[in-house]
Design a protein around this nucleic acid. Structure first.
Lengths: 217, 217
DNA sequence: TTGTTAGACTAACAGCGTTAATCGATGAAT
DNA sequence: ATTCATCGATTAACGCTGTTAGTCTAACAA
């Protein structure tokens, strides 16, 4: 029996490296296709250069692999939002501009890799298995309520109690725009300009206006 | 040499009926699971009592079967919205109440069969194959712009030009609420009351207020 | 030196979508 | 009355899938 171009087992303790390679391959495939059933363990294994059952050494099953990929994506999104808001604040932007920076970061995340975004929010409906408080999607919610709170603190300190409500409003409405925007028939929507316009007009309606209104009216 | 006159499709009776049976079974499975890959042609065939390849006599492939089911769902939704709006109008409801009736119909549709709703709007992202103008999802958009137009006509006739914009705003924002509402971690959201409250506060912000404001403020 | 185990493998099962080839019955054309 | 096309369905098969069971190999511990 001739030696094939087989991958030799990693030295002890380096098993984590293969895990990461599997994760990277799976991430790439999911970002390209946006469909969970387009990801096959055999395909991942083929790409990494191992055999399919070897994946089970690192992930419980296919669903576990997908979940791990998505968990990272939620955290990436939350970090991108926080960073955008903070660096806008550091640059001395006014509250409105800071919200805009965060929203833009969110939109970029969704539009740059639309299939990833689609996958992130096409969670199965499981009435009894609602995501627990520590589900990584909670980090995204936290980023939104933080954004809303930062805005209200500066623009309307008397209404800080509404921060969580406002955060949810912003998130859900923008999410709906992003999801339906490319589903709408061509003539009525489709260009990113249309989307940004929608987004702007939405923010104007949802954000309590500070005493010194922004020039966009 | 034969006459090329196409023979009328031999209505041997069974043909169309089987097609409908297949459609019914597929609809049921999709509404129960909400996942396209949970529908198997073999499963449908098993349920109907035929063999799997027989499905191909009536549907081009699995995707065609799913599309057919979803097309019907879009139309059902659009009809439900129209009916709700019209019967509210017939009952002499004010413009605001008519919008509320339509929105409630939409929410019911989404909540009664959440998996069906999820499936309807988890369309694959195909940048080049944007739904054409005659895609049945357009009937839903039409229902929303109709609703917006009817409202503006009575409540703010001077702004009828915004009808389509307003319709899109309503749709996207409500859709986002419905989708994320059950995804949010348990303590912050989950009950239908919370959803309705969100919905109401959204409508208040999005709908131009008529001269005689509704009593909900 | 022996035993244990991490890290990979091959083989196999059951299920999937889909295609090809076929069969029986019906109804029309000769 | 006989032939022929076609509708509605069949079985067989290909190549893919997720997953499990069992096995091999190399590295480490005793």
């Amino acid at each position: 029996m001739k030696s094939q171009v087989k991958r030799m087992p990693n030295v002890r303790g380096e098993g984590e490296r293969l895990r990461q390679e599997i994760l990277d391959a799976a991430t790439r495939i999911l970002e390209e296709t946006g469909r969970e059933d387009a990801l096959s363990l055999r395909g991942v294994a083929r790409e990494v250069g191992i055999s399919a059952p070897s994946v089970y050494r690192h992930f419980k099953d296919k669903g576990d692999l997908v979940s791990t990929v998505l968990d990272a994506a939620y955290r990436t999104l939350a970090v991108a939002m926080s960073k955008a808001g903070e660096s806008a604040a550091a640059a001395g932007a006014d509250p409105w501009a800071r919200v805009r920076a965060t929203v833009t970061a969110y939109r970029r995340f969704a539009i740059d890799k639309p299939r990833r975004y689609q996958l992130m929010f096409s969670l199965e409906y499981e009435p009894e298995r609602r995501p627990s408080a520590d589900h990584p999607i909670g980090t995204v919610l936290q980023a939104w309520t933080d954004t809303a709170d930062a805005y209200l603190t500066e623009a309307a300190p008397g209404r800080r109690a509404e921060a969580q409500d406002l955060g949810i409003h912003l998130w859900t409405a923008l999410h709906g725009q992003l999801v339906l925007w490319r589903t709408l028939p061509s003539p009525v929507a489709g260009s990113e300009d249309v989307l940004i316009e929608l987004e702007e007009s939405l923010l104007r309606r949802l954000l309590p206006t500070p005493e010194t209104p922004s020039p966009t009216e």
